[in-house]
Amino acid sequence: MEQLLDVQNLKIQFRTGEGKLSPVRDISFQVHKGETLCIVGESGCGKSITSLSLMGLLPANGEIAEESFIKLDSDELTGKSQDELRKLRGNRMSMIFQEPMTALNPVFTVGYQLREPLYIHQKLSRKEANQKAVELLDKVGIPDPKKRVKQYPHELSGGMRQRVMIAMALACKPSLLIADEPTTALDVTIQAQILDLIEDLKQEMDMGIIFVTHDMGVVAEIADRVMVMYAGEVVEIGEVEEIFNHPKHPYTQGLLASVPNVEDDEHTLESIPGTLPNVNEKIEGCRFHPRCPLATEQCRKQAPPIFHVNENHTSKCWLQEEANINDKSTTTS
């Protein structure tokens, strides 16, 4: 598969009252065309700011560190000016958010908000843009789109508004769509419809998708690959079957164990003991070791590097080194 997005050593810094904080450090990952990468992890681990940083939409006190490198297609995003990034936003990369109720501007019509990216990036005339807006609403499954374009967001339900957001994000046929928990605020049936819609549009447009979620059920449904984050770091990346069937990192194993299992009544819910460390908390060794049931002396002293499980699967855990050594010895003997 062709590579779409390449992120190397992403580090995000915030200027705060307590000094400079880096809630996301040293993250590297790739997204390919037509692929859905799910980002999972506990609340506060840095999923949203990672997504926002790719778009160049970090809050005013935040920035991407010098050493980071982001490339979309053949364009290096790091080092682009604010205005150059703006021209890519809504055009070649788009984002949808968690709260459909507040994500649309209450004082403009749905039609205006849909036409806006078309005016900005494709310089369409009002008439062309309006026609396109109607088509887009139709495409995301909104009935009677001619009437809807004239309405204001408060006249639409939450599910409808999220469809409008998707239509807006896809107006200029972006090659990358970032979705930050787009279905969390919706009820289950609507959630399933929105997921189907995103899946269909991905197929049709051959987009790469970064999908942030808490919900392992959603991951199972839509992910091609999964990236697990813990306290601002990537702890494991792999293909979805691998992650579900052979999770390597103890944190991933813990996350999966805390998912209710419908098929297995005997399955008991185990949540990972302890809480996410504070961003500015200094932790020696692996950041997960205070909560890790398998932590060793080495974990307390030295942060693990990234180990390959196989070509497409990595785990940032000392156990993996051990496993790799054992593997080698079994294959050589």
Binding site: L57, R86, R89, T102, I120, M168
Partner: peptide
């Protein structure tokens, strides 16, 4: 600070 302002920026609207 509201969500719809972030949406506007995400669409590429000029500052």
């Amino acid at each position: 600070r509201s969500d719809y302002i972030r949406t506007a920026r995400a669409k590429g609207v000029k500052e």
